[in-house]
Design a protein around this nucleic acid. Structure first.
Length: 954
DNA sequence: AGGACCACCTAG
DNA sequence: TGAGCTAGGTGGTCCT
């Protein structure tokens, strides 16, 4: 039930070689490691290019920037001409949107007025870009047909609805004359609640464009009258589905899948092409073939990934403002997905700049020209994915604003569709999970914006999210050493100082690429898009729910089930999981841990919990069900058994979990490292997806909350953990011939920690496995209790706070020291505390020397009191102190410090909710706070030390 | 002193 | 108009 990688966690993809750090800080004398690296790129390429007779250019005078001779690599590979009569077009779709346009002759759909057209962007196996316009798909939704409705009434219904929708429009600037395209009768069943498997007549209402769905739905809900029928309120179904998702679900297209346009079924645009893509085609929506991501269709096209970074010359102490401060450098790196090195490394500079081996420098005397040329560079390189660090909220907005300030009119056309301007918008994204977050967004049609900062904020819990910290954490590598404050000075210096800045800027463009690769972001996100069926861009711009909705709709469609639109209202929270009261203390005996694997998904599968199986009040009587047809959950809710109807959610979960098993099996067999990465990304996506189904049903402000499901799930969970405790403690007893009476000393949600009374890890493992198997036999398939690990020794401080040496792979050596909930894993303490506690825990658990722990803590405190340490927030839990003392046999009559507020400055960033600690004041202009240290020692006196903003923190 | 409440962050 | 869930520890503030 863990969705976010804690503290970065172990980084997947094998260990990386830590780079040796740069020793001297003397920049001009010795080139940095990064420069050596750039140099190596150059050497490798020189060899290759010598054969082709292309000389490398270090510094290029601005002029023929875009001529093929000078920059042969900028353009995509040549695209052979395409003949739709004889060629099949196959491409991997990476972005999908829609627009309103005029009908194209020969394509299906409405002919007059503006029609919605789906647009897919993608790349072929040979690296050519594709823009595919898909015609004839229109948005629709459902309402139940009123009693007595027949096909004779369709015309009247349609006319009347059309008329009220038209009347409802405040302005009609698109001059829409027809809003309702069609109304059909179709047999469907609501997915909410079991009502005896009877399909009813539903009206499928097709609208002319997506934005007409909401008013039509509203008008029907508020009360709609037509023909002889009385005024009536219509409950609507599937009226809140994004148009893109609607299309993808109906055509079996998933995010990042391969699309095939059979020969003869599509048209190549010769004139009238609107995109910058190499191929631009039109196709009818029923003519495209979507390939499931299996076998050969798991591959990934050679996508172009552009990473960039900008530098601005800010004024002293003022954050750069786009209307005043110039953009002085833009570094860009372009890499093909799947390759290890960027094949374009370039930096656009304002004013001259000395050459950097391995990268191309383009110097400009006019900032306007720099910006304009960079935009042209982007259009020429035609990247599929644009990355960088905080590009979404800084670099892109700054560039757009700066270009506007300088009136570089051709700058903001960065997308793949000609004539569409990239504009900046403020978005207010908010979720319980991530809090309120102000975000800026810009539209870049056809290119996926993959801001690495946003990825890290979503997927990793880190202490700090600066590029420097993140690079160090994942790559053991850091940024080039340039202080922000000296950027302007470097720019105003000479070509050597600007060169130093350029190296810095290049590295900041390079690091995101390295991180993307190391963390396998592109692969993992693509796999998530494929597994859940949503476009790649949704994964970064939307929440968790849309992924479940997409899967739910796909499953529902097969059974003619439709999803109601529910009004969201928050009610009472429901009861969650049980946390077994811990028997706090230090255990110098092995503690076995048994876990239910995928507890909540397996509960939903085992008991067939779903919207479609829920028996609402009175249903049992109404449907005349007998007791063996349904179950009653611990919360008193009723669901029919799978013999009557198999639930959609259990089906989805089974598919996800069996697909995960397959992926893991394939992963084991696979030898190709690249395919391995894909498979690992897939199994991870499948696991996360399975776990988020439960959360979806409990999301009260959501697309389809169903607390009967979520509270039944947790209810079963509570019952199960209680039962598990009883079972274990009843069987593993001296009376039954075991060495000791087993005792469950702790448990949380889906796990129990058992003191089995055996002396060795080996015995605990063996007995643990046996116990897990035996307990499993008492539960319904596929619920399974598994032996996970042995803790030895184990320090149980409180609920959700413990530490122990973790034995799993071997009984002889521990895998790690596992700490849960303790200061060492929390980000709201300064590092000193985390380090101190960590050292103490190591002392206690590994060295088995609690006095050592106490001594160490004392020493640190004493250092603090004597100002020998510049940072100091000390928080040692009372429990840890007590436990350490207990273990030490009360011999150590030292009370550790209880709590000491800080002399270091804590900064919490509201945007990211992250906290950083520093010994210097982060913002001198703003703080009024004073900080104090107060320590209690056994010698009774209290030291209080207060610092305020006028004192130096060190 | 003790409790109600909040913010923050974690466990699962 | 879009947002997965609950349990619970710890430390802080404010009130009585």
């Amino acid at each position: 039930m863990e969705f976010k990688r804690r503290n970065g966690g172990p980084v997947m993809g094998g260990a990386s070689q830590p780079k040796r750090g740069r020793t001297g800080g003397d920049w001009e004398d010795s080139p940095s490691l990064f420069e050596e690296e750039l140099c190596m790129f150059e050497e490798a390429e020189m060899e290759a290019e010598d054969r082709e007779g292309q000389a490398g250019h270090d510094v290029i005078p601005v002029g023929d920037l875009f001529s093929a001779d000078l920059n042969p690599r900028w353009r995509r590979p040549h695209a052979p001409s395409l003949d739709s009569d004889s060629d099949t077009l196959v491409f991997q779709q990476i972005d999908l949107d829609y627009y309103l346009g005029s009908a194209v002759a020969g394509m299906p759909g409405q002919l007059q007025g503006k029609v919605p057209i789906i647009r897919m962007f993608g790349v072929t196996d040979s690296g050519n870009s594709v823009c595919c316009h898909v015609h004839g798909f229109a948005p629709y939704f459902y309402v139940p047909a009123p009693n007595g409705f027949t096909s004779d009434h369709l015309g009247e219904f349609k006319r009347e609805l059309n008329s009220v929708v038209l009347k409802d429009m405040r302005s009609n600037k698109d001059n829409i004359s027809v809003t309702v395209l069609a109304v059909d009768i179709t047999r469907k069943e609501s997915m909410y609640g079991y009502h005896g498997r009877r399909n009813l007549d539903f009206l499928r209402i097709t609208m002319a464009m997506p934005r007409l769905i909401a008013p039509a739905k509203r008008l029907l809900e508020q009360g709609f009258k037509f023909g002889p029928f009385p005024i009536q309120n219509y409950q609507s179904y599937e009226a809140n589905i994004d148009f893109e998702i609607r299309f993808m679900v109906d055509t079996d297209v998933v995010g990042c899948c391969w699309i095939e346009l059979p020969k003869g079924k599509y048209r190549v645009r010769e004139e009238r092409s609107v995109s910058l893509c190499q191929y631009e085609v039109d196709v009818g929506w029923t003519d495209l073939i979507s390939h499931p991501a299996e076998g050969e269709w798991q591959r990934i096209a050679p996508l172009r990934v552009l990473s960039f970074d900008i530098e601005c010359a800010g004024r002293k102490g003022i954050f750069p403002e786009a209307d005043k401060d110039p953009v002085i450098q833009i570094a860009s790196m372009v890499q093909r997905q799947g390759e290890t090195e960027p094949f374009i490394r370039t930096v656009f500079t304002l004013q001259s700049c000395a050459s950097i081996v391995g990268s191309q420098i383009l110097c400009f005397t006019q900032e306007k020209q720099l910006l304009q040329s960079w935009a042209e560079f982007v259009r020429t390189v035609d990247p599929d994915i644009i990355t960088g660090y905080n590009i979404q909220n800084f670099d892109f907005p700054y560039l757009l604003n700066r270009a506007a300030a300088l009136k570089v009119t051709l700058f903001p056309y960065l997308g793949r569709v000609q004539g569409i301007k990239s504009v900046l918008r403020d978005m207010n994204f908010q979720s319980k999970q991530m809090g309120r977050r102000e975000n800026k967004t810009i539209n870049i049609e056809g290119r996926v914006q993959f801001d690495l900062l946003q990825v890290l904020l979503r997927d990793y819990k880190l202490r700090s999210y600066t590029l420097n910290a993140v690079s160090f954490h994942f790559l053991q590598e850091q940024k080039e050493d340039v202080q922000h404050s000296i950027i302007t000075d470097l720019q105003n210096g000479n070509e050597q100082t600007r060169r130093r800045l350029a190296v810095y800027c290049l590295k900041d463009a390079y690091l995101p690429l390295r991180l993307l690769q190391k963390l396998m972001c592109v692969i993992n996100y693509m796999e998530m898009a494929r597994v859940t069926g949503v476009p790649l861009t949704y994964l970064l711009s939307r929440g968790q729910q849309i992924k479940v909705v997409s899967q739910l709709l796909r499953q529902a469609m097969k059974q003619d089930l439709v999803m109601p639109v529910v009004k969201t209202e928050t009610g009472e929270d429901y009861t969650g999981a049980t946390v077994i009261e811990p028997e706090k203390g230090y255990y110098s005996v092995p503690i076995a841990t048994l876990d239910f694997s995928s507890l909540y998904p397996s509960i939903m599968m085992a008991h067939n919990l779903c919207y479609t199986t829920l028996l609402q009040k009175g249903s049992v009587e109404k449907l005349g069900l007998s007791p063996e047809d349904f179950i009653k959950t611990p919360t008193g809710d009723q669901f029919v058994k799978s013999s009557l109807r198999k639930g959609l959610l259990p089906e989805i979960l089974e598919n996800l979990l069996s697909a995960r098993k397959r992926a893991k099996a394939e992963l084991k067999k696979e030898t190709d490292p690249f395919k391995k990465q894909v498979l690992d990304g897939r199994q991870l996506a499948l696991k996360i997806s399975a776990n988020s189904v439960y959360g979806f049903t409990g999301a009260q402000v959501g697309k389809l909350p169903c607390l009967e499901i979520s509270q039944s799930v947790t209810g079963f969970g509570r019952q199960m953990i209680e039962r598990t405790k009883q079972l274990v403690e009843s069987k593993y007893t001296i009376a039954n011939g075991y060495q000791a009476d087993a005792k469950v000393i702790y448990g949380d949600t889906d796990s129990v920690m058992v003191k089995l009374g055996v002396a060795t890890v080996r015995e605990a493992m063996d007995l643990g496995k046996e116990a897990a198997e035996w307990v499993s036999s008492h539960f319904v398939h596929p619920i399974k209790l598994e032996f996970e690990k042995v803790y030895y020794p184990y320090l149980l401080i409180n609920k959700k706070r413990y530490a122990g040496l973790y034995f799993s792979s071997s009984a002889d050596t521990h895998d790690k020291m596992d700490c849960k909930g303790i200061e060492t894993v929390r980000r709201d303490n300064c590092p000193l505390v985390a380090n101190l506690i960590n050292t103490c825990l190591q002392s206690i658990l590994i060295d088995r020397d609690p006095q050592g722990a106490v001594a160490h803590a004392k020493e640190v405190i004493s250092d603090l009191l004597c100002n020998r340490i510049d940072i100091s927030q000390l928080v040692i839990t009372k429990e840890l102190t007590r436990t350490a003392q207990e273990y030490a046999g009360k011999q150590a009559h030292v009370e550790l410090a209880e709590r000491t507020p800080s002399t270091c400055w804590r900064t919490t960033f509201p945007s990211t909710h992250s906290t950083t600690w520093s010994s210097s004041c982060p913002n001198r202009s703003r703080q009024r706070a004073s900080c104090s240290v107060s320590l209690h020692t056994t010698h009774t006196h209290t030291h209080t030390h207060t610092l305020n903003e006028h004192q130096d923190c060190t």
